[in-house]
Design a protein around this nucleic acid. Structure first.
Lengths: 132, 132
DNA sequence: TCTTGACCTTGAGCGCGCTCCAGATGTTAG
DNA sequence: CTAACATCTGGAGCGCGCTCAAGGTCAAGA
């Protein structure tokens, strides 16, 4: 009988991976790299993730999706570990990141305009060829 | 005396690099990888880029900025080499790419929302702490 | 003439973010 | 009890997109 929800809402690595969309290997890698700390273990040393861990991994995913580097992520985590007094620094880090992300999105949108021109060009060229 | 514009509008690698923002090494790398073809050479074997090359590198940059892989880029170039009859395929490739880019941008914007929530959280937390 | 500097080629090296492997231990269904 | 499967650790390997190094050619200025 497989437990689907029980055991105090704790997730096995496999369940965690499914829930977050992050591979088991990557979860362990993040832990090694200091992005994931104090993960609970059961009596035999297997990881058991809790709801906080799930939420944190979702934050990590958002930051990775927006292109934050492992190094910055590590810095961010370390600040978190150092206590509430680092909140201004963490805010600063996120604001810096945000500015970069907005720039990146704008660069992509700008580049997309040229791609669209190319697309239009091909559409017209193909249509012409049909008529010619 | 250094020529700044002369020589039939042809650009040296250094000038090309400056103009396009792509490093000399990367320009050569792209050439090796088949992304840049039939680059002219002067009598001593040095590259001389023309206006078409500049425009093409700008296209490459847009495609790279939007995350097209080297492999797809190579495919796109090869199709171009095969003549006008590959235009429908090239159009298809660009349309596929476009869809992916739009998705990527949306994913980033979505992730940015969560980052913004975190930012708000810190802003409030810091303000509270000041008042408390 | 000599030096400087841009360019050439070939091929190795690198940083990032995973991803995989080996070999051991734990867990569970039949 | 056993077979099959999940997890553990430590460390190696990989794919991508450059980037750099070594050793050479060539042209121009002092």
């Amino acid at each position: 009988m497989k437990k689907l929800t029980g055991e105090n809402e704790l997730l096995t690595p496999g369940q965690m991976s499914q829930q977050t969309g992050v591979s088991i290997d990557t979860l362990r890698y993040y832990e090694r790299e200091g992005l994931l700390q104090s993960i609970n273990r059961n009596t035999s040393g297997h990881r058991r993730y809790n709801a906080d861990d799930v939420r944190w991994v979702e934050v990590l995913r958002c930051l990775r999706t927006t292109g934050m580097s492992m190094e910055q992520l590590r810095t961010y985590c370390q600040l978190g570990d150092q206590g509430e007094h680092t909140q201004p620094e963490r805010l600063e880090l996120l604001l810096r990141h945000r500015r970069k992300v907005v720039q990146d999105i704008e660069a992509m949108q700008q580049s997309l305009i040229l791609v669209d021109h190319k697309i239009d060009f091909y559409k017209k060229a193909i249509k012409m060829e049909g008529k010619q």
